[in-house]
Every structure is written in structure tokens, then in C-alpha cells.
């Protein structure tokens, strides 16, 4: 029954994306294919971090990663700084950004598991420390991305941007890990019922904690890619991803209370959100109204689509035995 319900939800979000796409194209009067390719290019970053957020949310017990946007910006700065506009340092830059994201993920996981800080407080406060770091780096000058990586983020193969293929590959890999590996099964079991998972012999602490590493690492890589695509890092580089990464997970059909996740829905929701912004821009809607429409739409869609009772309490850290 759960499969049926969540299946319906992700089909709805693709349908909504198509509606927005049609409105945008008819308002602009052109660009049937180019609109969707441009949207997919931007949506790819959202899909990559959305997959990381999905792993965290799937583990249940109020787990959520509010540091993603700050990790992306910070790793964007750090990665670009290591590269220094030099192609020879492209790989080290990417690796350092990924490592930074993993370290933040580890800090998040340890604070939640060992210090028993509620996930929402732990990830938010870690995020604010990173924001300070980004502000300091921003005042030390701007750094150009390595030309190779900047080229890659806008390059295409057979008309499809590479970054879209990367985003689809990440989603595919996530689906395999989640549904075809023992780790994925353990993760879903933990999210569905932690006490039951413990009785089944699953080390729920490790499984839940590991998701923050996935989320941090993917945010780190996505951040340096996004900074390269944007031609440089800025303090507000990834601000919209704090809400965005959660919204794509929930709109995509995963349950915020954990245990049930849907990977294909994430891409649908990312396309929907990106096309929505494109549509509002094409219709010359002001930034203020864009905020209002996006906020209301997100609340309305969730209120309308909510198929079953979800946990409304937050911040319940891992329960101790």
C-alpha cells in the first residue's frame, strides 16, 4: 500500500512539472526543448543534494540535515581556492571539497549520536559555523574555478548537459544502494521502526550516522560544481538549497518521518521547482511574489498530497536503550 501511495505521489510531481513546462513555453512562445534542458541543468544540483538529504530523512527519528546549503557554499569556496583557476589542481580541488563535506557530515553524525544533540539544532549550528567560515573566505578575495571544471558544468554530450547525466547517475546509484543492498534495507528498516531494527540486530546508530556522511559528501561535491558553474563562489551561493533539498525529498514522495523514500520523485520535484522559477521569471513576476508563490505552493501541495499521518514532532534525538 505504501508503494502504491508513494508511487502516486511521484507521478503527480512529474505531471505538475509538465504543466509548468507547457505554461512556460506557451508564455515565452518558444523553446520547447531548450527550456527543459536549461531547467534540468539547474535541477541537477538540487537532485544531487536532494538525494543526500533523502538518505538522512529516510533514517527517521527526526533526522534532517539543515547544514547542506552552508556545506555547499563553504566547499565551493574551499574547492575553488584549492584549484586557483588551474586545471592541474582540478582533481585535488574536487577531493578537498568532498573531504570537507565528509568531515562536516562526520561532525553532524557524532554530535547527534554521541552528544545527543537534536539533529535540527546540531546541523543548524554546525551550518552557522560554516557560514562564518564562508564569510571569512569571501573577504579574502574571489577565486576563479578551474577552466576545465567550469567547462564541464556547461558541456553537453548528444545535446544533454554532462551535469544532468551526473545527476541522473547519482540518483540511479542511490536507488540501487537503497533498494538492492543490505545497507539500504537496514537504513529503511531503521527509519520505519528503530526499536524493531535494533531487535533485528541492526546497529541503528551507525546506519543513521552514516547518512550524514553521504549528505555532507554529496553537498561538498555539488557545492564546488555549482560554484564552478556560477563562475565563482559567493556567500549566498546555495541559500535556496536549505529549503530546496528538503522540499524535493518530500514532494518526491518520501516521508519526512523516515522509512519510505523515493529516488525518482526527487528528480521530478527538482524539475518542477526549477521550471516553476523559470515560469515566474518568464511571466515577469517580481522576486517578492516569487517567494510568496513558492512558499504557498509548497505548503499547499504538501497539505493536499499528504496521504497519511506523518510525524509532526521534531528534534527527538535517538532514544537510548
Amino acid at each position: 500500500m505504501i508503494v502504491k501511495l508513494s508511487g502516486q505521489r511521484w507521478i503527480w510531481v512529474y505531471a505538475a512539472a509538465v504543466v509548468v513546462w507547457v505554461v512556460t513555453v506557451s508564455a515565452a512562445g518558444r523553446g520547447l526543448v531548450s527550456t527543459v534542458i536549461a531547467a534540468a541543468t539547474v535541477a541537477a544540483y538540487l537532485a544531487i543534494v536532494g538525494v543526500g538529504q533523502m538518505f538522512v530523512i529516510t533514517s527517521g527519528s527526526g533526522n534532517i540535515d539543515l547544514s547542506i546549503a552552508y556545506v555547499m557554499t563553504f566547499c565551493g569556496f574551499v574547492g575553488l581556492r584549492v584549484m586557483g583557476g588551474d586545471n592541474a589542481l582540478l582533481v585535488p580541488g574536487l577531493l578537498v571539497a568532498a573531504a570537507c563535506g565528509l568531515v562536516v557530515g562526520l561532525v553532524n553524525a557524532l554530535s547527534i549520536r554521541l552528544l545527543r544533540i537534536p539533529p535540527i539544532v546540531a546541523t543548524l549550528s554546525v551550518g552557522f559555523v560554516l557560514l562564518s567560515g564562508s564569510q571569512v573566505l569571501a573577504h579574502q578575495g574571489s577565486f576563479a574555478p578551474s577552466p576545465g571544471l567550469a567547462g564541464f558544468t556547461s558541456a553537453r554530450v548528444l545535446g544533454i548537459p554532462w551535469i544532468v547525466l551526473v545527476g541522473v547517475a547519482v540518483a540511479g546509484l542511490a536507488a540501487v544502494v537503497l533498494h538492492r543492498t543490505a545497507y539500504g534495507r537496514r537504513l529503511q528498516a531503521t527509519g520505519q521502526s528503530e526499536p524493531a531494527a535494533v531487535l533485528a540486530g541492526i546497529r541503528t546508530g551507525r546506519v543513521g550516522g552514516s547518512t550524514y556522511l553521504i549528505s555532507g559528501g554529496s553537498a561538498g561535491v555539488a557545492g564546488v560544481l555549482l560554484a564552478s558553474y556560477a563562475g565563482g563562489a559567493a556567500v549566498d551561493l546555495a541559500t535556496t538549497y536549505q529549503l530546496g533539498s528538503i522540499i524535493v525529498v518530500v514532494l518526491g514522495g518520501s516521508l519526512i518521518s523516515g522509512g519510505v523514500s523515493n529516488v525518482s520523485g526527487i528528480w521530478g520535484a527538482a524539475l518542477f521547482l526549477t521550471l516553476l522559477v523559470t515560469m515566474l521569471n518568464v511571466l515577469h513576476v517580481s522576486t517578492a511574489w516569487q517567494f510568496i508563490v513558492e512558499g504557498l505552493l509548497i505548503i499547499a501541495v504538501l497539505a493536499a498530497a499528504n496521504p497519511r499521518s506523518e510525524g509532526t514532532t521534531v528534534g527527538r534525538g535517538p532514544r537510548r536503550g
Binding site: S257, T287, A288, I292, G295, L302, V314
Partner: peptide, 24 residues
């Protein structure tokens, strides 16, 4: 509470509405 939407998402969504109205 009537529609059982997570307060995290509802209030994050509402923050966009507040911000947009304030900017208007």
C-alpha cells in the same frame, strides 16, 4: 495539525511567504 504537515517544512515554506510580503 489538521493536515499533519511537518512543522519544519510548513514554517520554512511560511518563511518565504513572510519574506515575500515584507519585500512587497
Amino acid at each position: 495539525h489538521a493536515r499533519q504537515v511537518s512543522s519544519i517544512i510548513a514554517t520554512l515554506g511560511a518563511s518565504f511567504v513572510w519574506l515575500g510580503l515584507g519585500l512587497l
